[in-house]
């Protein structure tokens, strides 16, 4: 199985973003505060309770279906970071 085949979603209340400090969010589900880099923050902003693929997330962000392979790997890497922080969940298609 590869991360490519995963669907990503967040089945919890939204991580509450700090309106002043960009990239800082408080997760009410765990009580933890997360400091997110640009890419994880951007991805988190388009992940909701609907399980979607990386391609669909790309489409949500850019309006385009395709993305370069290297960039796609970076996105998957960021998603795995988010999952490790329990900010998103994934399941296989």
């Amino acid at each position: 199985m590869t991360a490519d085949r995963r669907l990503w979603f967040r089945n919890r209340p939204d991580c509450l973003s700090d309106p002043v400090c960009e990239g800082v969010c408080f997760d009410p589900a765990t009580g933890e505060t997360h400091f997110l880099g640009d890419l994880p923050a951007l991805l988190l902003s388009v992940i909701d309770s609907e399980p979607v693929s990386v391609d669909r997330l790309t489409q949500r962000l850019t309006g385009a279906d395709a993305i370069a392979d290297d960039d796609r790997k970076k996105m998957i890497g960021a998603l795995l970071f988010l999952e490790a922080a329990e900010l998103v969940e994934s399941r296989f298609e």
Partner: peptide, 25 residues
């Protein structure tokens, strides 16, 4: 705007740092 943000973000390392307070722990 998102597209510009994404291309900028792709050039940086994906970092997620987590802090827990005592009660949060």
């Amino acid at each position: 705007q998102n597209r510009r943000k994404l291309f900028k973000a792709l050039s940086a390392a994906p970092v997620v740092t987590t802090f827990s307070s005592g009660s949060a722990l």
